[in-house]
Design a protein around this nucleic acid. Structure first.
Lengths: 148, 148
DNA sequence: AAAGATTGATGCATCAATCTTC
DNA sequence: GAAGATTGATGCATCAATCTTT
């Protein structure tokens, strides 16, 4: 028989987990936005498109590798296209190809070091080897949970 | 001299950290929304208002304890008020008092066990004692970073 | 002017509905 | 009809601008 609400200890852990992620993500968004006008979502999309192994990506494949729903990607690409970061090119029939533009490439290239530095400072630099093991194994367990 | 982008190892850690939080939050939102029509933000607000030590909370104090900006809270309370979860009552002059309604109390009461169960299943149940130490100490270090 | 709060604009995430081509 | 994608609606977060009372 479980209690109805979290104990003090439990909610402390939950709060720590949740706030930790939120802090790092907020700092990252600020750092990157300050230097480059890209959101983290923009960065993730461009990052996929910069992968040399992924030339002429179909939109569905892109959504797949980002772990995004198709509608989210479609909306996001519309906004990115209007900012000249990306171009959509209809292929045969219902298939759409996504390409990064020169401006997108430049934006990504200047954002990348800022992105890396921010993550190193706010997260990676704070983790002991011990913590890293925990982070990786928590992730592995959650992935397993999601496949049940 | 640091490299410009994250190493494979570094981005694996970053990805694990980010996705772990996202998974847990997504599951929680689904579980709670399925059972009760409350978002996590709603739940957090109601949780503060249910605290017996916090009767007749001023809006500013509420924002403070939630760690929210005043505009966010104002918008959110407008939506919650239109759903009869909460009532705003002007006090003297420019001060506004926030109260939870009966409906808000009921919603919170039925959401709480679902919320607790979801967090236990998706997060707390996955953590070793080892992991818990890491989660708490990472949080402590990030908090310290944020005060620099 | 400053404190307490609201408003409007914009971008983002999610869901359901739709359109188009096979 | 089903796959690939778009659209519209809604709720949420953030920022800047505004309003009101002191």
């Amino acid at each position: 028989m479980k209690t109805q609400s979290l104990s003090l200890r439990e909610s402390t852990i939950w709060h720590a987990f949740k706030e930790s992620a939120q802090m790092v993500l907020t700092w990252l968004a600020h750092d990157v936005a300050e230097a480059t006008d890209l959101s983290e979502a923009d960065f993730d999309v461009l990052s996929q498109l910069m992968d040399p192994g992924a030339r002429d990506l179909r939109q569905q494949a892109l959504a797949q590798s980002l772990g995004w729903h198709k509608a989210r990607l479609s909306h996001h690409l519309s906004r990115m296209e209007s900012r000249d970061l990306v171009v959509r090119r209809p292929l045969s029939g219902r298939i759409v190809i996504v390409n990064i533009t020169k401006h997108g490439r430049d934006a990504y290239t200047s954002a990348r070091p800022v992105h890396a530095a921010s993550i190193r400072r706010s997260l990676l630099g704070q983790l002991t080897k011990h913590d890293i093991d925990s982070v990786l194994s928590i992730y592995a367990r959650l992935r397993a949970l999601s496949r049940e």
